[in-house]
Amino acid sequence: MTVQFTPDRLAHRDDPEVSKITAISLSGTNTERVMHIVVDLLDELGPQTPAELEHVYRSRAAVNDWPVVAFYSVHKRVSQMKKHIGIVAGTGVREGGAERVQLTTDPLKAHGKITAHMQGGDE
């Protein structure tokens, strides 16, 4: 099954226009790759806020040949992983005004759920 990745699928309905434009520039493949990287970062680092994940992503992106993403894109992927895929949940611990998130399942299952979601199917 082939899924067309549209801005609506990569951005939330109520997102500002800049987020929708950003979603257009981030291909479905790169979106999925960023989510897989976030899983690996949470597995490595433990609970993090979206801002902390964004900071680590940006500091490691060039060295690891990760996709170049627009500002706040990692935040959006964390939100997508929480609301739509269900593999990330809040910990109740806040840092810098934001709640830290953690994986809700083991990393292997999380990766499988991301892939299934991005292919438009269920795990």
Results as ranks from 00 to 15, higher is better:
residue 23 A to G: 02
residue 104 T to H: 02
residue 49 T to L: 10
residue 103 L to S: 04
residue 121 G to N: 08
residue 75 H to E: 09
residue 86 G to T: 03
residue 114 I to R: 03
residue 107 P to I: 08
residue 25 S to Q: 09
residue 50 P to S: 07
residue 41 L to T: 06
residue 33 R to M: 13
residue 97 G to S: 05
residue 9 R to E: 07
residue 77 R to H: 08
residue 27 S to C: 08
residue 49 T to V: 12
residue 43 D to G: 09
residue 83 K to N: 12
residue 60 R to P: 02
residue 10 L to P: 01
residue 116 A to M: 05
residue 50 P to L: 04
residue 72 Y to K: 13
residue 42 L to Y: 08
residue 97 G to M: 04
residue 94 R to I: 06
residue 118 M to Y: 15
residue 123 E to A: 11
residue 84 H to V: 00
residue 82 K to L: 06
residue 17 E to I: 11
residue 34 V to L: 10
residue 34 V to C: 10
residue 82 K to Y: 01
residue 5 F to H: 15
residue 16 P to F: 08
residue 109 K to T: 14
residue 8 D to F: 10
residue 9 R to M: 12
residue 104 T to F: 02
residue 11 A to R: 02
residue 14 D to T: 08
residue 88 V to K: 00
residue 51 A to V: 08
residue 91 T to L: 02
residue 117 H to F: 15
residue 9 R to N: 09
residue 67 P to I: 05
residue 16 P to N: 06
residue 37 I to M: 01
residue 86 G to E: 01
residue 64 N to L: 15
residue 79 S to R: 12
residue 111 H to P: 01
residue 28 G to L: 10
residue 68 V to R: 12
residue 47 P to S: 14
residue 19 S to M: 13
residue 20 K to W: 09
residue 111 H to S: 09
residue 97 G to K: 02
residue 3 V to Y: 09
residue 81 M to D: 02
residue 43 D to F: 11
residue 68 V to L: 10
